[in-house]
Simulated assay, not measured.
Amino acid sequence: MDVNKVDSVKTLALVARELGRDEEWLFDIAAEMEPEDGLIWVFGPDDDGGAMAFTPDGIECLINLIAEQS
């Protein structure tokens, strides 16, 4: 999926809940990812560090990284 044609993303918290994984552990795993892998940062007016979010391809990439860790 072309990153410029993404119409929705899921936050790290939502992906962690859907995968039944610890959010902090997933954050550490996802730290290896780049925007080309489907990882983006979402910022709002009160966000100091932003929220990690994933495109559908990013979720697939994250699942593959999880499999490599197991």
Score class of each variant (00 low, 15 high):
Glu23Asp: 07
Phe43Thr: 06
Ser70Gln: 10
Ile66Lys: 01
Met33Gln: 10
Arg21Tyr: 04
Glu34Asp: 14
Glu34Gln: 12
Val9Asp: 01
Phe43Ala: 12
Ile40Gln: 04
Gly20Val: 12
Asp37Gln: 02
Lys10Ile: 07
Trp41Gly: 01
Val3Arg: 03
Pro35Ile: 07
Trp25Tyr: 07
Ile29Val: 15
Asp46Met: 08
Leu65Arg: 11
Gly50Leu: 15
Gly38Ser: 06
Gly49Leu: 14
Leu14Gln: 10
Ala53Lys: 02
Gly38Gln: 02
Ile59His: 01
Ala31Val: 09
Glu32Asp: 15
Leu62Gln: 00
Asp28Ala: 14
Arg21Ile: 03
Asp2Lys: 09
Glu24Phe: 09
Asp48Trp: 06
Gln69Leu: 07
Glu23Ala: 15
Gly38Asn: 03
Ile59Met: 02
Val42Arg: 11
Ala13Lys: 12
Ala31Phe: 08
Pro56Phe: 00
Ile40Arg: 04
Ala30Gly: 14
Glu23Val: 11
Lys10Val: 06
Val3His: 02
Gly44Ala: 11
Val42Cys: 01
Leu12Phe: 01
Gly49Asn: 08
Ile29Tyr: 04
Met33Trp: 07
Gly58Ala: 09
Lys10His: 09
Gly38Phe: 02
Asp2Gly: 15
Glu68Ile: 08
Ala67Gln: 10
Met33Asp: 09
Phe27Lys: 10
Thr11Ile: 03
Ala13Pro: 03
Glu34Leu: 10
Val15Gln: 00
Leu39Ser: 05
Ala13Val: 13
Asp46Pro: 01
Glu32His: 12
Asp47Gln: 05
Trp41Ile: 12
Ile66Leu: 04
Trp25Leu: 08
Ala67Asn: 12
Ile29Ser: 05
Leu39Gly: 02
Ala67Glu: 13
Asn4Thr: 13
Glu36Pro: 02
Gly20Leu: 14
Gly44Ser: 14
Leu26Pro: 02
Val15Ser: 00
Asp57Cys: 05
Val42Gly: 03
Thr55Ile: 11
Ile29Asn: 05
Leu26Ser: 04
Gln69Trp: 04
Val6Gln: 05
Asp48Phe: 06
Leu26Trp: 03
Gly49Ser: 05
Ala16Ser: 15
Val42Tyr: 04
Met33Phe: 09
Leu65Tyr: 11
Asp48Leu: 10
Leu14Val: 13
Glu68Gly: 12
Ile59Arg: 05
Ser8Gly: 04
Asp7Arg: 13
Asp48Ser: 12
Asp47Ile: 04
Val6Lys: 00
Gly20Thr: 08
Ser8Asn: 11
Phe27Tyr: 13
Pro45Ala: 11
Thr11Leu: 15
Met1Pro: 11
Ile29Pro: 04
Arg17Leu: 08
Trp41Cys: 04
Pro45Cys: 04
Leu14Gly: 03
Asp47Ala: 12
Asp47Glu: 06
Asp2Glu: 14
Ala53Glu: 03
Leu65Lys: 12
